[in-house]
């Protein structure tokens, strides 16, 4: 149960959403963009957040649905993880990741934007966009802009207040690339990841994305260089990659840092062996 009152808006366009946000700010009211609500509702129940207003993105056509055009796939930010698993077959890595987040019931609600901008560490749905160098379409007071996903979300950053995520655009050829994916949890499969590793191989080069081991999801050019360094053995590459994580491994009640290290090392080796075999 949420104990406080808040305003609810359901704009029909991105422009209208931004306008509402601005108007509320001028009145000194704090608004948040709202999609599936699984996070906003849980946190509001727990008293962790108390927005004055929520602006529901689900009525905005640009944020909904996905378009499969000649070279690009466009996925609306309000698309749910269930939509992805049911429909978006040309992006198999995205489907795999979506399918292993939460439960079907929750996935019917959880949106791409909500996951990518979640306050949790995991934000696993960001990984396929990172690996495919997708374009994030972001709207803000200065208008609608296309930004590089990796740069936009580097080192765990999210959007500035007042900006909203409209959609992701992914090159179709990249979306269909050969991939590896594995998620490790503390015990039950439905748990949050203690380590998720996904990787794609294009033009002979591996690029890897990580979630659960640091406080944010990431891909890292240095790590990718190590993973592709054939002068090193597979286990040396794995070890070296771990030595270059952007941050200390998380050490919490889901898993100790030492165990995460153990799990990640195995995942990296498994991934490297997988690509060695397929090529």
């Amino acid at each position: 149960m949420i104990s406080f009152d808040f305003l609810y808006f359901r704009p029909k366009s991105v422009h209208e959403a931004l306008q509402i946000y601005q108007d509320l700010s001028h009145e000194g009211l704090q608004a948040v963009f709202y999609n599936g609500g699984t996070e906003i509702i849980s946190r509001a129940r727990a008293g962790e957040v108390q927005p004055d207003a929520v602006i529901d993105m689900k009525g905005i056509a640009d944020c909904q649905g996905y378009r499969d055009e000649a070279e690009w796939i466009t996925i609306g930010a309000a698309v749910t993880l269930s939509n992805i698993t049911d429909e978006i077959n040309c992006f198999p890595l995205m489907q795999r990741i979506a399918k292993e987040i939460a439960t079907r019931n929750a996935r019917n609600k959880i949106s791409i934007a909500g996951n990518v901008l979640s306050s949790l560490n995991y934000r696993e749905a960001l990984l396929p966009f990172l690996l495919t160098d997708s374009v994030a379409v972001v709207a803000g007071p200065a208008g609608i802009k296309e930004e590089n996903t990796a740069a936009l979300f580097a080192n765990g950053s999210r959007l500035e207040p007042g900006k909203l995520l409209v959609q992701f655009k992914t090159e179709k050829e990249r979306a269909g690339a050969n991939y590896f994916f594995k998620k490790k949890t503390k015990q039950s499969a439905v748990n949050y990841p203690i380590a998720t590793l996904c990787a794609m191989k294009r033009e002979g080069k591996i690029t890897a994305g990580f979630s659960g081991i640091c406080t944010f999801p990431f891909k890292d050019a240095k790590i990718d260089r190590i993973l592709n360094d054939h002068a090193l053995t597979i286990s040396a590459r794995a070890e070296e990659a771990i030595a270059h994580l952007p941050e200390k491994m998380v050490n919490d009640f889901h898993a100790s840092a030492g165990y995460r290290h153990f799990v990640l090392e195995q995942l990296l080796i498994e991934m490297l062996e997988h690509f060695e075999e397929v090529s």
């Binding site: 849980s42 015990q187 039950s188 499969a189 748990n191 949050y192 009640f253």
Partner: peptide, 10 residues
């Protein structure tokens, strides 16, 4: 979310 119990598939 964080207190784990056995699910049907387990």
């Amino acid at each position: 979310r964080s207190y784990d119990v056995m699910r049907i598939q387990d």
